[in-house]
Structures are given as C-alpha cells and as structure tokens.
C-alpha cells in the first residue's frame, strides 16, 4: 500500500473543469436518480472528508510528542536505576558494616582486640574507619570484667584511673564526691588536651558486660567500658590523637584486668580537690 493512499486529493475547484460526477450520477442537487448508488455516494463523501484531514501534520506531531515522551521515559528510568543502585549500596553497606561488627564482637573473634592490634597501627581499634566522616564511628570490643568487689574498689579509687602517659604539664582535678577524675593542660606540642574519667551507671552505647564501646570524631575519643553489671567506666580524651587515646585506654584496661598497680607517674603535676 502506498503511503497515505487513502488520502485522496481534494478536487481542484479553481480549475475550469467541472467537478467529477460521483458514481450513480448524483451530485446532491436535484432529484436523486433512480439508479443512484447510495453505496458509492457514501464512499465518495467519506473519501472527500478524509482528504480534508491533515494526516501529515498529525503524523509529525505524534512523532515529535512520542520522541519527547521516550526521552522523558529514559530519563525517568535512569533516575530510578540510580536511586535503586544508591539504595542497594546503602543497604549492602549497612549490612556489611553490621556483619563485620558482629564478627568483630563475636566471642571467638574479639578476644581483647585492643591487645591484638598490631604495634605499628596508627588507628588502634578504629582501624578501617574514617574519623569525623562516619556517623556510626563506634567500635565495640570485649576487654574483660571485674568482680563486684573489684568494681566497688574502682568506684572508690577513681582518682587512680589516670593514664601513665598523660603529659606532665596537665593539672589534675579529682572530684571526690562524684567518682570523677579530670586532667587538663597542653601536650608537648602545645595542643590543649583534657582527660575525664568517671564511673557511670549507663552508657550511650549498648554494651554487654565486659565489653567496651569506643567512639571518636578524630579529635575527641570516648570509651565506655562495662566492667561489671551496671558499672561503666567512662574515659573521655579531648584533643588527643586517636592512637594516643587508644594506647592510654589500653594501659588502664590492662591495669584493671590484670590487677597491676599504676606505674609511677609524674603526670599529675598538681592535685586539687574540687570541693575547695
């Protein structure tokens, strides 16, 4: 079939020739001949009216509109694909993080992680994570527990929970009534640093007994360690590098779990009673 062959040309009415006489001879004017074929008149009329329709224009508009719709559909499809990919990435990333966390805190996989860190690691228990960029920058690890008597002794001797490696220039405050010890000052490089250790009965990080949870933004590092049921040691290192905070926490954890006496330290340059 030829293109648009149903679109028959409209009669050129400006021509001198008379209009074609339809089959049956009837022109619509005057009496209908006996032999007029209505069938042919209907076909002729339908063809003439069809010829007046701008099918070429309709085709062009349909194509233009369809191509625009196709392009829009493609954009939408790409946007949905990217969205799904992003959602899947977040989901699998979260799942991976969760699985790694479970492995890390599993009974056979987490035995005193602090003590198993390579000596040359710069990141300690935060290895593989990016300080300050990961909102879930929290690690849990099992350090150990103490007996109820030992826990009570820790509460009563919180002033001893000073890391050996605190800078000598730091001033120490022991808050006798609130089971808290603080130290502040500057380190060897002139950076202001602080240390706060206290005994709490709750933790912002969900922890099992014997477990420690640590979080950092790269400058401030906090540890919560549930040494006994409902007894948490909180250590807050401000301005220290993570590796130093990690090392100091490790030394205190080792001292508590192994019952070692604190090393002779010159760190507390001055001791004051906050009650004063």
């Amino acid at each position: 079939m030829k293109k648009y062959d149903h679109i028959r040309p409209v009669t050129d009415n400006t021509a001198a020739e008379p209009a074609p006489v339809p089959p049956g001879g009837y022109t619509g004017v005057g009496p209908l001949p006996e032999d007029a074929e209505i069938d042919c008149i209907l076909k002729l009329t339908a063809d003439e009216l069809t010829a007046e329709v701008d099918f070429a224009g309709i085709r062009e508009r349909a194509l233009k509109s369809a191509k625009a719709a196709k392009a829009k559909r493609g954009k939408l499809r790409r946007a949905v694909s990217y969205g799904l990919f992003a959602a899947a990435s977040v989901f699998f990333g979260f799942a991976l993080f969760t699985v790694l966390g479970k492995i890390h805190t599993a009974p056979h996989g987490n035995v005193d992680v602090l003590n198993t860190q390579p000596a040359d690691t710069d990141e300690g228990i935060f290895r593989g994570m990016t300080p300050g960029t990961d909102p879930n920058f929290v690690r849990r690890t099992t350090v150990g527990t103490v007996s109820e008597e030992e826990a009570e002794e820790i509460v009563n001797s919180v002033s001893e929970l000073l890391p050996d490696a605190l800078p000598n220039s730091m001033t120490t405050l022991v808050d006798q009534g609130s089971s808290r010890v603080c130290a502040s000052g500057v380190d060897d490089e002139g950076t202001e640093v602080s240390y706060v250790c206290s005994i709490e009965n709750s933790s912002p990080i969900a922890l099992a007994v014997g477990q420690v949870g640590a979080m950092t933004d790269g400058e401030d590092t906090t540890y919560y360690w549930q040494v006994a049921d409902g007894q948490f040691i909180s250590m807050h290192f401000i301005g220290f590098e993570v590796k130093d905070a990690d090392s100091m926490f490790e030394s205190i954890a080792k001292r508590i779990t192994e019952g070692e006496a604190p090393a002779e330290t010159t760190a507390p340059a001055e001791t004051a009673d906050s009650a004063n």
Binding site: P18, P22, T27, T45
Partner: peptide, 26 residues
C-alpha cells in the same frame, strides 16, 4: 459529520455542489 469545516467564503459552483452533497449525506 464535517459540519465544522463549512466555510462562509463564496465557493465556486463545483465546490458548492460538492459541499451541498456532503452536507446532505451527513
């Protein structure tokens, strides 16, 4: 059918006859 295409301009006779037939059929 096709009534809206009727035009008010004067038509040549042949076209007029055709239009009349079309309208009569419609």
């Amino acid at each position: 059918v096709g009534a809206e295409i009727a035009d008010t301009d004067p038509l040549p006779e042949a076209e007029l006859i055709k239009k009349q037939r079309q309208e009569a059929v419609q």
